[in-house]
Design a protein around this nucleic acid. Sequence first.
RNA 1: GCGGGAGUAGCUCAAUGGUAGAGCGUCAGCCUUCCAAGCUGAAUGUUGCGAGUUCGAGUCUCGUCUCCCGCUCCA
Length: 483
Amino acid sequence: MAAPNIETIVSLSKRRGFVFPASDIYGGLGSSWDYGSLGVELANNVKQSWWRWLVHERDDIEGLDSSIVQNRLVWKYSGHETTFSDPLVDCRECKSRFRADKLEYPKISDDTETQKAFENTPIEDLIKAKNFPCPNCGLKNLTEPRPFNLMFRTTVGAAAVEEDESALAYLRPETAQGIFINFKNVLDTSRRKLPFGIAQIGKAFRNEVTPGNFIFRTREFEQMEMEYFCRAEDAPRIHQEFIDAFQVWFYSLGISAENLKLYEQTAEELAHYAERTVDILYRFFPEREDEEKQFDELMGIANRKDFDLKAHSKKPEDAAGKRVNPDTTDDLSYFDPQTNERFYPYVIEPAVGVNRTLLAILMDAYTEKINDKGETRVILKLKPELAPIKVAVLPLAKNKPEIVAMARTLKKDLLTTMRTVYDDTGGIGKLYARQDEIGTPFCVTVDHESLEDNAVTVRDRDTWEQERVAISELKEYLQKRLG
RNA sequence: GCGGGAGUAGCUCAAUGGUAGAGCGUCAGCCUUCCAAGCUGAAUGUUGCGAGUUCGAGUCUCGUCUCCCGCUCCA
């Protein structure tokens, strides 16, 4: 059972310390969120799962951690300086919004001369003269195009001033480019041969026009991106393999198949670099009536062709024999010693949002259970691997010093092996409920009998069943059940 | 950015223009042999922020910020 909606998760997150609104005491900052003690553990576990699965276990992928601020030319040749700046116009009448560069001349007259004259006037001038009809309502009352810069601008150098173009830099809008510009470095030092991948986890920044929906779309976010380099003829097959593999990975994180969906991007939707892109969608909005609209993007898996490596290389020339990229000092082509060919590898890019994955995991793990008294209890059925806390050690009664002492010792013994906490601020029922709500798989309870028989009760989060386990075997028992 | 809605304790919400409250949660003590028990006590608010009207503003007016829902973009 998934959470009824994102609001439920927001409320739980604030209440229990997964996610807080950022700079809250100063009134907050649009779409910024801070991760609390449980949130950071969960996020780290997600990232670790991804890294281990791709970089450590596959054996054909290297890790990388590149700079957030790069030379501005990186973003010039990646295409972001032009594509990440959209001129937008609004219709004052029907409130629709359009990209000015994608507007088309409508037919306004049967008279070819009139129509021709109309089409020869720049759209921007027509809009200014209130002579261009809104594609939606047809009324001629559009606002002038305003540029929306999706990239965060900053200046490099302590003495640089805001207007100094030479000091202008951007916070990266994606981590991918850091990988492409390091392709040669990694290739040479790791002695890899095609096919192989480079993986990176890191923050990216976009001045989204419309952020929102909690941590679903924020201006500062974290990506787990991997660029897999291969021969052009292998790209479609490898692309499909990753599409399949990532679905399985999401299953392994506890996300149910019924809340996941594939989406094939249409030709119009494809990014400037992509040949084919398949998104994996998650049911982030189960409360929406239209089933289609319940789903939104969790990750994208793109075939970027050889666009990026070529764009950053010095050899490609245009029709006139001029270098397409006169600024780069290197050529990112690959030489195959077996076939004596030199070419630009194709790239398959699975890009996952850390924050979105976290949200999907929380929503999917959210479960409500009715207890014997008919009250609703919240259980976060997180995979043990992802749970921020693995074990809570609880004294059944805290007015017995022997029980408390035993529980504290037990906690100390366990925490070197697994994340363990101790809690005695409440009756046993409340302590269990609290751990259920934050997804702790097991509670270990020390009672009066424990003092006699050196055994404790282990309670299962999902079934609420209890089992008596000897303290001497406890650590091994828990490790086994935690997987 | 535009349109619509909303901001009161950690959460959920009260409070005719007249002393800012409740429940839950949190914390401390007592009690307690297993699923948010009970008792006692405590902390927590410049009512988002700033002006204005008024003898007096949580309440009325204006500005501003933030959040939510749509429009564009994407992980």
